[in-house]
């Protein structure tokens, strides 16, 4: 993605988070939704404000812009990120697989199904992703 397009996309996303956040808080004030949704709205609003502050700094501070651009475009950083996601996915599958066995032994059927189901979903997603990536590269 081109940098300018990426920045525009981030601005739109940040503002969207803010709008959704404020809407959820407003809905809670009028008792249309419960506290769960207003909590989520508050979190989105905080994320939105932080993102906007970062974007303003990115625009006004050349040093910060250079450091951010380097961090984003640095190929080792990307490699590390991919590697970390790969490890996280692998660990999640292992933990969920062991968890499903432990939950079964503890007669926790719901948790067992949730753990084994999530393993299946991740594996299906992996194979779908693999097939897409194989065609792309």
């Amino acid at each position: 993605m081109k940098p300018n397009r990426n920045i525009r996309y981030r601005w739109i996303l940040s503002i969207l988070y803010g709008v959704i956040g404020i809407s959820l808080i407003a809905c809670n004030l009028f008792h249309a939704v419960d506290d769960y949704w207003s909590g989520m709205g508050a979190a989105l609003l905080v994320i939105s404000v932080l993102q906007v502050l970062r974007l303003i700094r990115y625009k006004s501070d050349p040093q910060y812009k250079e450091a951010t651009d380097t961090a984003v475009n640095d190929e080792r950083n990307r490699f590390l990120s991919t590697k970390a996601w790969s490890w996280a996915g692998y660990l999640y599958i292992m933990i969920a697989a062991v968890g499903s066995i432990v939950f079964k032994l503890l007669n926790q059927e719901t948790l067992m199904f949730a753990a084994s189901g999530s393993v299946c979903i991740i594996l299906v997603l992996y194979w779908i992703s693999y097939l897409i990536v194989r065609k792309k590269y």
Partner: peptide, 10 residues
């Protein structure tokens, strides 16, 4: 690093 557009750690 700056000339190559990567971090010093890289």
């Amino acid at each position: 690093a700056r000339a190559l557009g990567v971090s010093r750690q890289t």
